[in-house]
């Protein structure tokens, strides 16, 4: 797949997000179930993103790991896939699909504004633990997104949340807890990979530090939920949204602002 075809495919996928979002809002006004249309639309978008990622992978002979464009493109794919699977398994997450699709649309537009030129993967990066580390990271962010979207949905309807949000609330904590497990694995796999690539398993570079802080924040929130059982539920939802914001900044901001080895400077 040429670069031009890849970009066209990505444009089509981003347009797809916009169409799904509009469709979602229109069908909602008619008080009909929107999930068949939303999931169908997202499956088409996922197919387009799969083609774009695979085409780039084959053309460049390396996975999408290094540049901001690589990270955005692969995250569009993984976030869409994880959300579809999560919403299929936990139907309560379908309610907040508009928020998820809107976020994916913003990421998609962002990906169209950054340079798509590939940078060769340093030889030290080519390690099976990198794959596990990155996969766990994608799963983490992929699970955080529906958790945050559901929390935002509940916050927006906090007057009725007690009545209609019980299962959504459970879904928020389920996905966040699973995200915590994935995050823990990401840290371990990343340490093994770093030891192999740079001869140290931890060095407090910016990305490592912020990733660890994100992990600590989730641990803090899970413990706070047990400690303060009478805490207003809105506090917990707000914290979940804040953690997702921190995770997005960590994954999509820190690696491209710092000059740490994680950026790929070798």
């Amino acid at each position: 797949m040429s670069m031009a075809v890849e970009r066209t495919t990505l444009v089509a996928a981003v347009t797809g997000f916009a169409v799904v979002l509009v469709l979602n809002l229109l069908l909602r006004r008619g008080a009909r179930s929107t999930w068949p249309a939303v999931s169908g639309g997202l499956l088409i978008v996922l197919a387009l993103l799969t083609a774009a990622v695979a085409g780039r992978w084959i053309r460049e002979s390396q996975g999408p790991f290094l540049t901001l464009y690589d990270v955005l493109l692969s995250n569009l794919f993984s976030l869409t896939l994880v959300y579809l699977v999560a919403a299929w398994l936990v139907p309560a997450l379908r309610r907040s699909s508009s928020i998820v699709v809107a976020f994916l649309g913003v990421l998609g537009v962002w990906s169209l504004t950054v340079s798509a030129v590939a940078v060769p993967l340093p030889a030290t990066f080519d390690n099976p633990w990198l794959w596990l580390h990155v996969t766990a990271g994608k799963l983490f962010l992929g699970l955080c997104l529906p958790a945050a979207a559901a929390a935002l949905w509940l916050l927006a309807r906090r007057q009725n949340a007690e009545a209609e949000g019980g299962e959504m609330d459970a879904a928020v904590w389920l996905t966040l807890s699973l995200a915590f497990v994935c995050h823990s694995f990401m840290l371990i796999a990343g340490a093994i990979w770093a030891h192999s690539a740079w001869g140290r398993y931890w060095a407090w570079d910016s990305l490592e530090t912020w990733t660890f802080i994100t992990w600590l924040c989730i641990a803090l929130l899970l413990h706070a939920r047990v400690t303060f059982r009478r805490m207003p539920v809105t506090y917990g939802w707000s914290a979940v949204i804040a953690i997702f914001g921190l995770a997005v900044l960590t994954f999509l901001g820190v690696p491209f602002l710092s000059v740490a080895p994680h950026k790929g400077v070798m």
Partner: peptide
């Protein structure tokens, strides 16, 4: 089962 249960048909799958 509560966490994984399919949301009741009464608009449970309604998107936001």
């Amino acid at each position: 089962p509560r966490a994984m249960k399919v949301v009741a048909a009464s608009g449970g799958e309604q998107a936001a």
